[in-house]
Amino acid sequence: MRWLNALIMLLFVALMLYATVGLPDHADPQAPANVHVSPTYIEDTIEDTHTPNVVTSVLADYRGYDTLGETIVIFTAGLACVLILMKRKGNDKATLSKHHRSDYM
């Protein structure tokens, strides 16, 4: 088992280092991620929204749908926390016995 873990980690590191070769250089202004859509956001933010902080205007205006889904995810996580830790009906001792343990989990 230990050798299997070591092998998986070695393969992972080798794959990641191989993938690093194709990435753009450190702080390259002409990298593909920096030239496609973000210049539009930076140049239009004052005119469109009067908001100097570009991160806020992209977060709440240009990509507001994304943030709506993310807020729903956080709310769902809170609900899941309540439901997991809720005290169930019937006492815990009975559900902890060996016969019912698979049902309990």
């Binding site: 991620a33 570009v54 994304d66």
Partner: peptide, 8 residues
Amino acid sequence: YINPLPHV
């Protein structure tokens, strides 16, 4: 200015 999209 640096790219704001990954920050969001």
